[in-house]
Design a protein around this nucleic acid. Structure first.
Lengths: 234, 234
DNA sequence: AAAAATAGTTGCTCCGGATCAGTTTATTTC
DNA sequence: GAAATAAACTGATCCGGAGCAACTATTTTT
């Protein structure tokens, strides 16, 4: 598990990724049940997988692609997390007295989503404790990341927040110090809780300071130690 | 379940409370196991129950009192949630590869905390799927509230944030439109992500506008409809 | 290939709210 | 019950960063 920043402070990362498969914890019968009650759907870049407030009918298993999980209201937009392949999404809808999705999901790239009937999924959670224990692990790991992000967005200012997001993208999403961003500057704004203009200005500043290299959508982290210091000091 | 604001928008509330007891889902043997591996400790007002970063040795079941669950770093302080009796805390530490507490807990009032051995607790989660399913429910309900709070603190400005917190305190913690606050103005600041001075100014403004009544620590919500409108429009 | 729409960029202005510096009012402490 | 400490409050200043307008570059549409 990657936990690059936890040693020195509160982790601020944004994405959840686990290689361990929940699927392997199911019995053969349960696997069949899941297979019979799920379909794999292809979404094009920019398409909406689900909307907050809708009845939660499925659990979404992201088989491939990159999506944002977000809240929107009026013109306000908050990206809760990014998710890549192997992520289970929509589980947050599972709690008593609730039957609505707590967030929306939209793709950044062409994505493949396996949509699993939520009734079947919860039935398995109720009957298979190894499975549900694993799900608890997944949820808690997401929550820990959410805390870090919450801290970053509420307690740090622009420099720190941008450093956080860049480190996160590098560590968790692209797993490389250089990557091609499929997100717009406006999306980076939503992700860091700042305006599009500020994102542009900050990134230019980082580039001028030699912290990152940048040509259009291509970004390279050049001085990770300094980025981490910026992250730490806010 | 109280969900006062979900109808019109993103819920912004801060506290988790569930009357359903996880304890009843255990078998007699499991109950005995929990009893033998837990102790009830009394904390005075202002005492620290646990600190972020420490090894997670226990799950904390708040039997009585009021506590804050928070992140602190340097002079920055973010209250993640308030918790009252019947809350299970510290579960967020349960995930693979992690053995540290992701947050600190401090009491606001004299509190009674049952400290349950985390190994025993996780063993029960692994073996009792009704129990672990219930825990998933609890975690998800907390997460949904966290999302709302996250949205509130990052997307709304002072008026909206204060309205959110006041409605939350009234709905979830004190379950009354008038209550005596055991929190200082500085704590309200941490809770709303604003400075102590701003809290004071905003509350005075709310008082002058007839939204709330206030004498020292005693607060009464006078115009809930208007507070909800302020919450909605940020 | 031209037109239209979207995304990226820059400079300028302005305001929300933090910070600072101080005063007043409560709580502790001895 | 006087002194000390902490919490509550007030006014004045200042700055981070949003918002706006204008312009350029890049896609998308037809």
């Amino acid at each position: 598990m990657i936990q690059s920043n936890d040693a020195k402070g509160i982790s601020h990362c944004t994405v959840f990724d686990s290689e361990t498969s929940w699927y392997d914890l199911l019995t053969d019968d349960e696997k069949i049940l899941i297979n019979e009650n799920s379909v794999s759907i292809t979404f094009k870049k920019g398409e909406t997988v689900c909307k907050r407030g809708a009845f939660a009918s499925h659990i979404y298993f992201l088989e491939d692609g990159l999506v944002k999980v977000y809240l929107e209201e009026k013109n306000k937009n908050l990206i809760l997390m990014l998710a890549i392949r192997n992520n289970l999404l929509g589980m947050a809808a599972i709690f008593d007295g609730n039957n609505k999705l707590p967030y929306s999901i939209t793709t950044y790239t062409d994505s493949v989503v396996r949509m699993i009937d939520i009734q079947v999924f919860t039935r398995l959670l109720r009957q298979n404790s190894a499975f549900s224990f694993h799900v608890i692990n997944l949820l808690n790991e997401k929550t820990a990341q959410m805390y870090g992000r919450f801290f970053s967005l509420t307690q740090k200012q622009l420099h720190g927040r941008l450093a956080d997001i860049l480190l996160c993208l590098s560590n968790r999403i692209f797993k490389s110090t250089s990557f091609e961003l499929p997100l717009s500057r406006a999306d980076l704004g939503d992700l860091t809780g700042m305006s599009t203009e500020s994102i542009i200005r900050m990134m230019k500043e980082f580039k001028d300071d030699g912290l990152i290299g940048m040509h259009c959508k291509n970004i390279e982290l050049l001085d990770i130690a300094r980025l981490e210091r910026i992250s730490e000091f806010g």
